[in-house]
């Protein structure tokens, strides 16, 4: 049982932030690692990358977008409530290295995953330029945090309601044109965004890391639900990842695999909404 100490809603209540008591995980977790949650006895196991940890206080931060039954259920949890199971830290930590100039690109709730990585990259002495984007101004999260974690911050919105009008990849392309010293791009967000981040960086020959949010069950390498093709080889996102060289990832396959249970997810979500009188 893992107690929710703090809860806040963000991005027009489409995104939720929990600060959860999990001392051992907080002590062990490194940027880029994730946890698996199971909200209650009938619940499913979902992976969520940690947005931060506080080893002193013994807490971890998780930020998730409400996209279906499990995340909608989690949103009904209040401060003081308990999440039944939290398992972690899982996956390999981000490979952190002082390289020089690094671009961190985040979209949607991917910004939450990107945040601790950005912070760590800056802390070890990189010049970090971050680009964060959302569909519209109200959906943008962690602007202040990302600003503090980066040397430079650019913002884009699809509808032009805030920052630059356009996609994160537009801003990224301009930066890559301007600056020839970019050594690494880290792109985290929805799969189509990551795919285009990789397409954008490829002609410039800049190494691009992505974090793959595949469907998982046990998340310890036992089941293979999260397999993805990387460099022509099958990899398990849970133990081999979640971060991979984006130029090697078969994003189309990943998108199809992520959509495998859309029908069931809809059934589950509609049932949930009915039960909760929505």
């Amino acid at each position: 049982m893992f107690k929710i100490l703090k809860k806040r809603e963000m991005a027009d209540s489409t995104v939720c932030h929990f600060n959860v008591e999990a001392p051992l995980i907080a002590k062990k977790a490194r940027p880029g690692q994730f946890v698996v949650l199971r909200p209650n006895e009938t619940g499913e196991r979902i992976p969520l990358t940690m947005a931060g940890t506080d080893p002193e206080r013994g807490t971890i931060d998780i930020i998730f977008q409400v996209v279906g039954k499990t995340t909608a259920l989690l949103r009904t949890f209040r401060e003081g409530d308990y999440i039944l199971d939290v398992i972690g830290p899982l996956g390999r930590p981000t490979h952190l290295e002082k390289l020089g100039t690094v671009i961190c690109v985040g979209g949607g709730t991917g910004i939450a995953v990107l945040y601790p990585i950005t912070k760590a990259l800056k802390e070890i002495g990189n010049h970090v330029i971050s680009i964060i984007g959302a569909r519209t101004k109200d959906l943008l999260i962690l602007e202040e945090e990302m600003g503090n974690a980066s040397n430079e911050l650019f913002i884009t919105t699809d509808d032009g309601s805030y920052g630059r009008h356009g996609f994160v990849t537009d801003a990224m392309k301009d930066l890559l044109e301007e600056r020839k010293d970019v050594k690494l791009v880290v792109g985290i967000g929805p799969v189509p965004m990551m795919k285009f981040v990789c397409k954008t960086s490829e002609p410039y020959g800049v190494k691009t890391m992505v974090s793959l949010n595949a469907i998982m069950v046990d998340a310890t390498g036992m089941c293979g639900a999260c397999r993805a093709t990387v460099g022509g080889k099958t990899q398990f996102c849970c133990v081999d990842g979640p971060e991979f060289d984006g130029h090697q990832v078969d994003f189309d396959e990943l998108m199809k695999r992520q959509a495998a249970y859309l029908k069931e997810e809809k059934v589950s979500y509609e049932l949930f909404l009915k039960e909760h009188g929505q």
């Binding site: 009938t42 619940g43 499913e44 069950v217 036992m222 089941c223 093709t229 695999r257 589950s268």
Partner: peptide, 28 residues
């Protein structure tokens, strides 16, 4: 890696541990 291809571990874990055979009573 097509959808609809499971390892036995995944298939059985979904059904047994996660009780997917009782979906949608159970969420998996």
């Amino acid at each position: 890696n097509l959808c609809g291809i499971y390892s036995a571990n995944e298939y059985l874990t979904r059904s047994n541990l996660m009780k997917a055979y009782l979906f949608p009573e159970y969420d998996t």
